[in-house]
Simulated assay, not measured.
Amino acid sequence: MDNKNNIIANAKQTIAIESKAIANLSNFINSDFEKAVKFIYASKGRVIVSGIGKSANIATKIVATLNSTGTPAIFMHAADAIHGDLGNIQEDDVVICLSKSGNTPEIKVLIPLIKNYGNKIIAITGNKDSFLGTNADFTLNTYVEKEACPNNLAPTTSTTAQLVMGDALAVCLLNLKEFSSQDFAKYHPGGALGKKLYLRVSDLIAKNEAPKVSPEDSIQKVIVEISQKRLGTTAVIENDQLIGIITDGDIRRMLEKTSDFTNLTARDIMSENPRTIEKDAMAIQALEEMESNNITQILVKENEEYVGVVHLHDLIKEGIF
């Protein structure tokens, strides 16, 4: 099959071209990049990110990344900026302009207006000698040899390079701010990602009962307790101390060995030293414990006292698994 019509070959070639361009970006990380990061970090204002065409689409993603990692940012379309949206820019704001050529008409009109306001400009451009590149206070070079587009026209490699440079800025700022996972959770409270960051074991067991039996209880009582509490397990408690666990699997294995369990007790079939987790632990830690130990439930303790059970289904219900 001709290369032109070979979908797999074309896809691999696209990835190879863009990968090479991204790898080459590291050669453009220089003092201007360092100064730009430090200037944004020290700024009392926001980051205004602007562009036109496909660069505008990348600008909106950079804004989203900056906002989610603790650097306040807003998007301003370059065309709209010269028709009224310049009012978005405040005294202490830093402006990032994205343009592959750095010579688009809108950019040529916009840059002098921003400079008249006294705001610093960071250029992300593939042409450091362009109007944008030479008039910016800091220039971040995103030059690419060619687009992945076979006609070398559609913005593909160049917009990927812009995106990566924006990520590099955001990550460097994140590190300077010592932005923690707890900080991240404040900006991402929704969805599975947010729950991984803030949901605790105590939240999961709030609606669950805490099944328990004594070591001398009959197997019948054990089965009833497991069935009624609907968690597939029960703790075994002696003198207020957790000494074991009995699961559905333990019951099945017992029945495989004997049909007469009249004289058997919980102690006879329980597993000692069960896996436990603290009530204030993160829910994601409970999932990690279950996965690493190939179990579907884990007993919960608070100050060495048994307080409940987390089941894999609880994690599935919350969208964490």
Rank of each mutant, 00 (worst) to 15 (best):
N3A: 09
K4S: 11
I8L: 14
N10M: 15
K12Q: 15
I17Y: 01
I17S: 04
K20S: 12
A23L: 12
L25V: 08
N27Q: 02
F33Q: 11
K35G: 10
K38H: 06
K38G: 06
K38A: 10
F39H: 15
A42L: 08
K44C: 06
V47W: 04
V47T: 10
G53L: 09
T60W: 01
T60R: 10
T65W: 00
N67K: 10
S68R: 12
T71F: 03
T71A: 05
P72E: 07
P72C: 07
F75I: 01
M76E: 04
H77Y: 02
H77D: 11
A78C: 12
I82F: 07
I82H: 07
H83G: 01
G87V: 11
V94I: 15
V95M: 12
I107M: 01
K108A: 00
L110I: 07
I111P: 03
I111C: 03
P112E: 03
P112W: 04
I114V: 14
N116A: 15
G118T: 02
N119I: 09
N127P: 06
L132H: 02
L132S: 04
L140T: 14
L140Q: 13
N141H: 08
K146I: 10
E147Q: 13
N151S: 15
N152M: 03
S158T: 06
A161E: 05
A161F: 05
G166H: 08
D167M: 04
V171E: 02
C172M: 12
K177M: 03
E178L: 08
F179T: 02
S180G: 00
A185K: 05
L197V: 13
L197A: 15
Y198V: 14
L199K: 14
V201Q: 10
S202T: 08
D203C: 08
A206C: 09
K207G: 00
E209G: 15
A210D: 07
K212L: 14
S214D: 07
P215Q: 13
I223E: 03
K229T: 03
K229D: 04
G232V: 01
G232W: 02
A235W: 06
V236H: 06
E238S: 13
G244P: 00
I246F: 01
D250I: 15
D250V: 14
R252N: 10
M254S: 13
L255C: 07
S259W: 01
D260T: 00
F261H: 14
N263F: 06
A266W: 08
S271M: 09
N273Q: 14
N273L: 14
P274Q: 05
I277D: 10
A283E: 00
A286C: 02
E288D: 15
M290T: 13
E291V: 01
S292F: 04
I298E: 03
K301V: 15
E304T: 13
E305N: 12
V309F: 05
V310L: 00
H313W: 10
I316V: 11
E318S: 00
E318R: 01
G319V: 12
I320H: 08
